[in-house]
Each structure stands twice: as structure tokens, then as C-alpha cells.
Design a protein around this nucleic acid. Structure first.
Ligand SMILES: [Mn+2]
Length: 479
DNA sequence: GCTCAGTCGAAAT
DNA sequence: TCGACTGAGC
């Protein structure tokens, strides 16, 4: 899942920072990642349907860490699944069911610790659990959205439009979706590794100097992604080298056909070309929810020539109508079935409420948030926060939520830097690609470069030409 | 040096 | 929801 090996390869351009650097700014959180971590400690309860609030506590602990630093969290949940990912989803589900079976058997035979092991492997975040967390977030006045489909795309949209300053996630796909800043591997103290798009040209092992956004995405897809497995024998390093040398997918596929090291047939590559285009479009035009207009948008708008003329865009999923989108994306309806949730608090949400109430006894919770003493937090050498418990207190009374509340349009003064506007930067212009010669730069001199292929002399450009819409590298470079 | 499939891990005791 | 690591194999 994700782009295999990408984060590892981008380490050198990352910067260790603490989340407090986003003070007074909004930050979007890949919530399912936190939820999964929070579910491990209560895996057995969840698998057996025993109410628990531990996973909510885990997430809220981190939410409160951010709030302590005056960082404004915007929680983002995954929504529906794309037809393209259906197979891997069902495989995951079968795997989980198998693990639950095994765990239950072990439990019946009295082997509790081994059962625990299998329960943990069976962890699944259900829409109901997500909904329980959403109810809690609503009570606590924390902004959140449910993505129409992948949270990755929604997170990138929020960051790219400047609605938030950065994204917190573990997912390498955020690079493919071109989120300008991502904080990876954030621990419970708020320390993590920030990767910024604008710093990719300074990366060491894989050098992205002179790469356009489309070239970066081409590299990611060729390396193997959720929407398309890589070609056999080609992964991140090779994909990167090919894109660096030949820039566009059309040229790369022509070169690969001639490359005797690989024995790709024209049929292989033509089939791949078409799937590649679909993957490219799935990243590019993914459905997202715009919190300002409260409507569905494409991550990058579809040009007029595409869409209607060329027919089948079902791989993007259903385009919800606006009323449905507001219910789903603001957390009032199930993202799979579109059925409205009951407004009754779930068992888990009530459990969390009663537990946090216990911690609060004797205090006015609103005051404890506002007047929490800063000296309860110690910043030590490596910026480690040792305690922020006094901040864990949530407001007991949430402002009554209207059936479909207005999204908070209030924007922090600190507007995120916006390296490029989505409509200008990301749309590849439909310019005809140049000839497919290897591009040689002074900075490339050290790189090994095989002789340009000149063997089979097969003309496939007319097959690959279909790709030109989305994949020509005719957009601005980063520097 | 690169790819790939398999295993382990995420929490917190 | 995901990644890191390892060792085999080219
Ligand atoms: Mn992803």
C-alpha cells in the first residue's frame, strides 16, 4: 500500500520538528491512522462487541496534545472505497475474519495471550467506531470531515488550498497527492519528520531536481501504487531513473519496449499505458469535499475536454449530489450506505464521556481548558513534552450542533504558504510531447545512463498517444 | 544495487 | 489506516 519505499527514500530532505511549530495554524489529521493505533490496545473488546472508549481516548489524547500547543486540528476520515481498491479491501476483510476465528478458538481453549495476538491482527475500524469518535469530536468542538473516498486526497486538498497549513499522516500517498507539507511519524510528544514538497529538489538518494509535479506522480505510479501494481522488475529506483531521463510516460514506455533487459511485449505496455492513465487520473481528479463551498470538487479540476467527451470516469466513484455530500462529509450519514446516523450517542461515545467526566470531577471543565497552566508542560532538550494532563479536560457542554452546521470558514491569520494554485500547477497542458531522447543535464552527469534504445524500432506512439491529456510534463517545475 | 514477498509492528504493560 | 525490516534471488 502507498508508494513502497518512498518515505525511506525521502528521509534526507525531511526535517525533524515538533508539531508546536504549527502554532495558531490549522493542521489536517489522517484520522484512521490514529484510530488504528488506538484500537490495538482494545482489539479483543472490539472484536467481541464489548463497548470500549480506549480508542477514543487515544485519539483525543493526541487531539489535546495539539490543542495544548494551540495547533488547530482538522480531523479527516476515510469515506467510501473505490471500485479499484475493492479487491484488496475484500482480501483484508477475509484476513481479518480468519484472524477473529482463530482468536475465538484460542480464547475458548483458555489461551488468552495468544488470542490477544490474533485479535490485534484482526483490528478493523468500522464506520460505527468512526462515528463514535465523530460524536466525541463534535462535543469537544473539534472540526472534522469525512472524505468522499480516500482521506489522502482530502487531506492534500485542504493543504493545497491553504485551508490547513500541513497534514499529519503516515501515508506516502500524500506525496503522490502533492500535499505541500506532511508531518510523518509524529509521536506522543508531537515530534516527527516534516517533508515539504518544495524541499524535494534537495533530497539526496533520490534526486527530484527539475521534476514537475506530474513527473513526481509518474514516478510514484510506476513504482507501484494502490491503483496499479508496478511493472515486473521496476520499482521506485528504476521508475525515478526513467522519469528523470525521459520525463514522460509515453517516452518511457517506448524505451522499455526496446530495452532487452525487460521482455515487455507491446500488448503488455499498451495495456499498462491505459491502466496508467486511469491511475494518473484517479490521483489527479479524486473527489474531495470543499469545506468552504460545502460541495464536492475534484482535487484538480477536470478540463472541459475530458469528462463528458471521453465517457467512462466511474473509477473516480460516484459523484454525490450536494445534499448527500453534506450529510456524509460532515459526519451525519454513513459513507457507504448514505443512511443517516441516529443522533443518539453510541455506547462508546457515552463511555468516553463518562470516563472524561470522572477525570474532571470538581472542576469547571471549560475553565480548565482555557486556563490550563502552561508550566504543566516541560520542553526538554529534544522538545519532549512530559505532561499535558491538565489540558485533557474537554468542554463538558458542546454548543448545540444544527442538523447540518456551517463549516467554520474562520481562517487562521497565518495563511499557509501556497506554492502553486491547483488550477494552474497541476493540470498538465495538452501539449504534444517532444521527441523521446534522454534528457541530459550537468547535474545528471554522475548518473549512469544506458545508451538510448535504438533496437527494435517499434512505433507505439500512436497507442500511447492517448496518454497525452494528463501526463505530458508541461507544467511548472518546483524551483 | 534493486526488487519482492514474507514477517513484524503500531499500544502499553 | 498503514510502514519497516529482512533475506532470497536476479
Ligand atoms: Mn493511501
Amino acid at each position: 500500500m502507498g508508494i513502497q519505499g518512498l518515505l525511506q527514500a525521502l528521509k534526507s530532505s525531511g526535517q525533524p520538528i515538533n508539531v508546536s511549530e504549527y502554532k495558531n495554524q490549522k493542521v489536517a489529521i489522517d484520522t484512521y491512522g490514529w484510530l488504528h493505533k488506538g484500537c490495538i490496545q482494545c482489539a479483543a473488546e472490539l472484536a467481541q462487541g464489548i463497548p470500549t472508549a480506549k480508542y477514543i481516548q487515544f485519539v483525543m489524547h493526541r487531539v489535546n496534545l495539539l490543542r495544548h500547543f494551540k495547533v488547530i486540528p482538522v480531523m479527516v476520515f476515510d469515506g467510501g472505497f473505490l471500485p479499484m481498491k475493492k479487491e484488496t479491501e475484500e482480501e483484508r476483510r477475509r484476513n481479518r475474519e480468519h484472524n477473529v476465528q482463530k482468536a475465538m478458538e484460542l480464547l475458548r481453549s483458555g489461551n488468552r495471550s495468544q488470542a490477544e495476538d490474533f485479535f490485534q491482527r484482526a483490528v478493523d475500524v468500522t464506520p460505527l467506531m468512526a462515528h463514535s469518535l465523530m460524536q466525541t469530536l463534535r462535543e469537544e468542538g473539534v472540526e472534522f470531515f469525512v472524505a468522499p473516498y480516500e482521506a489522502d486526497a482530502q487531506l492534500a486538498y485542504l493543504a493545497r488550498t491553504g485551508y490547513v497549513s500541513a497534514v499529519i499522516s503516515e501515508d506516502s500517498d500524500l506525496i503522490a497527492y502533492q500535499s505541500p507539507r506532511v508531518l510523518y511519524k509524529m509521536d506522543k510528544f508531537g515530534n516527527g519528520l516534516e517533508i515539504q514538497m518544495v524541499r524535494l529538489p534537495m533530497n539526496k538518494d533520490l534526486n527530484f531536481n527539475h521534476f514537475t509535479p506530474t513527473m513526481i506522480l509518474t514516478t510514484c505510479i510506476m513504482a507501484g501504487c494502490d491503483y496499479l501494481p508496478g511493472l515486473p522488475g521496476i520499482a521506485l529506483k528504476t521508475a525515478h531513473r526513467l522519469v528523470k531521463q525521459y520525463r514522460s510516460i509515453e517516452c518511457i514506455l517506448q524505451i522499455l519496449l526496446a530495452e532487452s533487459k525487460y521482455s515487455f511485449t507491446p500488448q503488455d505496455l499498451v495495456a499498462y499505458a491505459s491502466k496508467f492513465q486511469q491511475a494518473m487520473r484517479t490521483f489527479h481528479h479524486h473527489y474531495v469535499y470543499d469545506p468552504t463551498t460545502r460541495t464536492i470538487q475534484n482535487l484538480t479540476p477536470c478540463p472541459d475536454t475530458e469528462g463528458h467527451v471521453e465517457g467512462d470516469w466511474d473509477f473516480l466513484g460516484h459523484r454525490m449530489d450536494t445534499a448527500t455530500a453534506r450529510s456524509v462529509c460532515e459526519g451525519y450519514a454513513n459513507p457507504y450506505t448514505y443512511e443517516l446516523y441516529s443522533t443518539e450517542p453510541t455506547a462508546d461515545a457515552r463511555l468516553y464521556r463518562s470516563h472524561s467526566g470522572r477525570r474532571l470531577s470538581g472542576q469547571d471543565p471549560r475553565e480548565s481548558v482555557a486556563a490550563a497552566p502552561l508550566n504543566s508542560v516541560e520542553l526538554m532538550g529534544q522538545r519532549k513534552v512530559t505532561s499535558f494532563f491538565s489540558l485533557a479536560a474537554p468542554p463538558a457542554v458542546a454548543p448545540a450542533a444544527p442538523a447540518l452546521p456551517q463549516s467554520q470558514a474562520t481562517r487562521a491569520e497565518f495563511k499557509a504558504p501556497r506554492p502553486k494554485s491547483p488550477e494552474a500547477g497541476d493540470l498538465a497542458l495538452a501539449t504534444a510531447p517532444g521527441p523521446c531522447g534522454a534528457k541530459r543535464l550537468i547535474s545528471d552527469a554522475a548518473d549512469a545512463e544506458p545508451a538510448p534504445a535504438k533496437r527494435k524500432r517499434v512505433r507505439l506512439s500512436r497507442y500511447f498517444a492517448v496518454l497525452q491529456d494528463d501526463t505530458s510534463p508541461g507544467n511548472a517545475e518546483f524551483d
